[in-house]
């Protein structure tokens, strides 16, 4: 049993079990955690949109439209985002920040790493999986 606030690393499975661009959602110590693999790496977020609480991991994972001249759309996948399925607000997977300053609220993110082709996510508190 870990201490309440100590970081705990949880093993979630082999990398190959994580499809590209689609979240897998886990219940870890009572928290819903989504993990997604993208071309830019693995990301873990809380499956709860900070706007109105939607299960955001059901949303689309992609790059996004970046600032451009009017009517000159420029798509970039340098900053992967997840778009909430309820209101399409986009959050950066790496930082949890709202893309385009739509809100000051942040999506909760968790450290995630790969070790020997296996995926681990670290949460504060709870039992190790």
């Amino acid at each position: 049993m870990s201490t309440v606030r100590a970081p705990v690393r949880h093993h979630l499975g082999a990398v190959e079990e994580f499809p590209l661009g689609r979240f897998r959602v886990f219940e870890i110590s009572g928290r819903p955690v989504g993990v997604v693999r993208t071309a830019q790496g693995l990301f873990a977020v809380r499956n709860r949109c900070p706007h109105q609480g939607a299960a955001i991991c059901a949303g689309r994972v992609s790059g996004t439209m970046v600032a451009s001249a009017p009517f000159e759309y420029e798509y970039s996948d340098k900053t992967p985002v997840v778009a909430c399925p309820w209101h399409r607000w986009e959050f950066e997977l790496a930082s949890g920040r709202s893309y385009g300053r739509v809100t000051n609220k942040r999506l909760v993110t968790y450290p995630v790493e790969i070790e020997d082709d296996h995926v681990y996510v670290t949460l504060r508190g709870g039992e190790a999986a």
Binding site: T64, A67, F71, R88
Partner: peptide, 15 residues
């Protein structure tokens, strides 16, 4: 509307 439709008007850098 801007909050949800930002991708339609990405040139806006202000609300």
């Amino acid at each position: 509307e801007y909050r949800g439709l930002r991708v339609e008007v990405p040139w806006l850098t202000q609300t």
